[in-house]
Structure formats: C-alpha cells, structure tokens
C-alpha cells in the first residue's frame, strides 16, 4: 500500500465523519442532499460484496465495514431521525438520469460479465457521479455551510489521492485498471470548480455562496 492510497482512505473516512458530526451536532441535515447519501450507500453495498468472498487484511475488512456503517447511519439520520430538517424541496435532482445510464454502462463496459464484476463496475461508475445531487443542491440554493464545504473538500481530495495511487501503481507495478482510472478522472473533474471556490473563498474565511 502506498502513501497516496492510505491518505486517500483517511480523507474519505474524514469526509464521512465530518458529515456525521455536522448532522449530529447541529441536529440538522439542512443543505445536505439525501439523494447523494443514498447513492453512496448503494455504491458501498454493491462494491463491498467481496467482504463475503475475499479476505485481504484486517485493515481492508474493518475499513469496508466502517464505510458501510457511516453511509447507512448518514442515510438514517437524514431520512429518519432528523428528517424534519431535511430540505426535500431543493434536493430535486432526478436520480434516474444517473442510475439508468450507469446501470446500462456497467453491463456494456466491464472486465467480465459476471455478477460481482458487473456490480463492482456499477459501483465505480455510480461513485463518480454520486455527488452530483449534492452539487446540484448547492447550485440551486446558491450557498453551502462551511462545514459542508469541508466535507466536499475531503471527499474530492480522496478522489484526487486515489488517482495518484493509480499513477503510482502504474509506475511501480505496471498495473492499472482502466475502469477505475477513467472514472477517477471523471469524478475528480466534477470537483475542480468546487476546489477553486473552496480555496478562494472558504479558506479565506468567507462563506461559500454563489453569485
């Protein structure tokens, strides 16, 4: 395991913890897209089925389990415990626009036509677009709480670090995974605009609001 991979995992975990802490402390999920969080729960569920078929390491098993738990607890807080604070009105991204193409693509473009492989591919494609409902919500309301932007920053950082991981593995092991790399590039591009706003506004102490 290389430094980019481990830092990527840490960023990913940190992002999910920031989101949970934000919701728990403020007892509110205002400004958070429940749809994005449901998509992430689907992503982890369809990807980590290998928990039952393969063992890599304690680290791998524990992290997968923690990611799944975080995703499900977040969904529960949004649609269960704090549903009264959920901004259903502005979380209006049409999920079928993501789910239908992603499902179709995972059947068409995969490494081999087996259930686990298709589900893994589906999860990779879905992850690359899962944040779109959240970004859509921010562009609709025109603002985001600072803690929400920290969440997005660490989520984006995780994607960027994973890209570095794939480059590193290609250089050192001559190993690459086309599906993971292409999806990684796509999802990192989605964050570029946000990264720019984060650096120019949030890090200078201003609230993220769109003109």
């Amino acid at each position: 395991m290389n430094i980019f991979r481990i830092l990527g995992d840490v960023s990913h975990l940190l992002a999910m913890i920031i989101l949970l802490v934000k919701i728990w402390r403020s007892k509110s999920c205002a400004g958070i897209s429940g749809k994005s969080q449901v998509l992430f729960a689907i992503v982890f569920t369809s990807r980590y089925l290998d928990l039952f078929t393969n063992f890599f390491s304690i680290y791998n098993t524990v992290m997968k389990f923690v990611f799944l738990m975080c995703a499900y607890i977040t969904v529960y807080l949004i649609y269960g415990k704090f549903r009264k604070t959920f901004d259903n009105e502005n979380d209006s991204f049409r999920l079928e626009f993501l789910l239908i193409p992603v499902t179709g693509l995972s059947f068409l473009e995969n490494q081999s036509f087996t259930p686990l492989e298709i589900l893994w591919t589906f999860s990779i494609y879905l992850e690359s677009v899962a944040i779109l409902p959240q970004l859509f919500m921010i562009s609709k309301t025109g603002e985001a709480e600072t803690i929400t932007t920290h969440y997005l920053f660490f989520l984006g950082l995780y994607h960027a670090l994973y890209l570095a991981n794939w480059i590193w593995r290609y250089q050192t092991e001559n190993y690459y995974d086309q599906i993971a790399v292409v999806s990684g590039v796509v999802q990192t591009i989605f964050y570029c605009d946000f990264f720019y706003l984060y650096v120019t506004k949030v890090l200078k102490g201003k609230k993220l609001s769109l003109p």
Binding site: R5, H12, T53
Partner: peptide, 10 residues
C-alpha cells in the same frame, strides 16, 4: 492480467 477482481482498493 486476466484477473481483475478482487481489488484491495476501497
């Protein structure tokens, strides 16, 4: 490499 899955990556 014919083998694809499993991955150690999360």
């Amino acid at each position: 490499h014919a083998l694809h899955l499993p991955h150690d990556e999360l």
